[in-house]
Simulated assay, not measured.
Amino acid sequence: MHALITGSAGFIGHALSRRLLAQGHRVTGFDAMSDYYDVELKRARHRDLAQYSGFTAVEARLETPGAVRDVMEAAKPDIVFHLAAQAGVRYSLVNPQAYVDANLVGVANILEAVRAHPVRHLMLASTSSAYGGNISLPFRETDRAVTPLTLYAASKIAGEAMAHSYAHLFSVPTTAFRFFTVYGPWGRPDMALFLFTRKILSGEPIEVFGEGAAERDFTYIDDLVDAIVRLSDHPPPLPSEGGPVSDADTLSNVAPYRLVNIGGGRPVRLDAMIGALEAALGREALRILKPLPPGDVIRTHASTALLDALIGKVPETPLEVGIPAFVEWYRSYYPDA
């Protein structure tokens, strides 16, 4: 298989690229190396991938006219994993234009490139933030996503809708998947686990939003990648060629399109996550309890019924295993921490 992976220098894109390369596949990695967080960490991820002869790196921006299409024409991939995006819930309050550029214009350019150069499966990353103000738990893919709480969430919902329209108009087999709080080695510096680790090791207090009572459906990176790879072998069929796999299926009745949650379905309180981190670090955190900031929700909880029906496996690594693995990586990457 030859895969085009956008966001290959990102946390998830790097992990997925590494998995596919280790399995002997070829990967063309597309990344802008944006400065939303430490660019050197992103370059280190690409250097890690460069150990594989099947890896080709392209540094370009999604929103640049023709950039994705030119890469598609040259690489001729069998499958596209679109993971690149402007991430972050709170940053969307500071720099909304970045979300319009990467998450709206960027998705449009991906769809046009796939239209010009068809692939057997387009896989599009979305987010659990799409559920927004939904109060029904667990979050089911069949729930209406009409109450986004941030521009980030709204931009990802828009990307899902745009992808569905292209799947309908041009018969592009498309799976959009919603992630739930992904963590693990090579993680993102703007996310809680990374921030907490740095501050605890340096003796700084950590800000605990939701006063520790907020719950998140933490998903270990290796479990997430395993689910993505397994799902890649299940492109949605055309309406005339197949039907739903279960009552939980979101298969469109007018397009080869499906929406799938990827999460473990086991929410954990933030204060319990901090306790597991303290145990792994061998240090206690100085905590400053704060209310939830605008755009955050008190609880995320994935329904895994559809994921299980499609691949027979859901993320299962517990925090007690995943957090020590992250700490081990962190201490090796930052030996002076």
Rank of each mutant, 00 (worst) to 15 (best):
L307F: 13
V39K: 15
L277H: 09
R258C: 07
T197Y: 02
T317C: 06
R299F: 09
E278L: 08
Q86E: 15
I228E: 05
D190R: 04
S126K: 06
T197S: 04
I12Q: 00
L231A: 04
G243F: 08
T64H: 08
D233E: 12
P256D: 01
K290R: 07
A227D: 00
G243V: 00
M162C: 06
K156D: 10
Q51H: 13
S128C: 15
A125T: 07
S246Q: 12
V100D: 03
K42P: 04
D222R: 14
S129Q: 11
D78F: 00
V245A: 06
R198V: 04
F177P: 08
I5K: 10
P324G: 10
E160V: 09
L122D: 02
T250R: 01
H82R: 01
V39P: 05
P205M: 04
A248F: 09
A108V: 14
G132Y: 11
R198S: 11
A158Q: 09
S128A: 15
E73I: 11
V245F: 03
V260H: 02
R47G: 12
V182Y: 06
E73M: 10
M72G: 09
A176P: 00
D217V: 12
L151W: 13
H25P: 08
I5W: 02
I110V: 15
R140F: 09
G10I: 02
V58N: 07
Y37L: 06
D226Y: 11
F326L: 13
S53T: 13
I221Y: 00
K42H: 12
G212S: 09
E141L: 05
V268E: 13
D48T: 12
S165N: 15
N134F: 00
G29K: 06
L231M: 12
L319H: 00
G54N: 13
V80T: 00
L306Y: 02
I288G: 10
D249V: 04
G133N: 12
L124S: 12
E316D: 14
M162V: 05
I288V: 14
Y257K: 01
I262G: 00
Y220T: 08
V297M: 11
V254D: 14
G133K: 12
G54L: 10
A176F: 07
F11V: 01
V208Q: 09
I135E: 15
L292T: 15
D222K: 10
R299N: 08
S232D: 02
S155F: 05
H25I: 10
R61S: 14
P237H: 07
V321Y: 08
I262W: 00
A3T: 15
A214M: 08
Y220G: 05
L104H: 02
E278Q: 11
P294C: 13
K290I: 06
D226R: 11
P118K: 09
A130F: 02
A57V: 13
S155Y: 01
A161Y: 10
P118S: 05
Q86F: 07
H164I: 03
D78R: 02
E215K: 14
M123F: 01
L286C: 00
G184A: 05
S128K: 10
G88T: 03
E207R: 15
I221V: 13
A125S: 09
I206W: 04
V94C: 11
V107Q: 01
T181I: 06
L4K: 08
A163L: 07
S332Y: 05
D308R: 14
P96Q: 04
P65A: 08
F55Y: 15
E160D: 11
W186E: 08
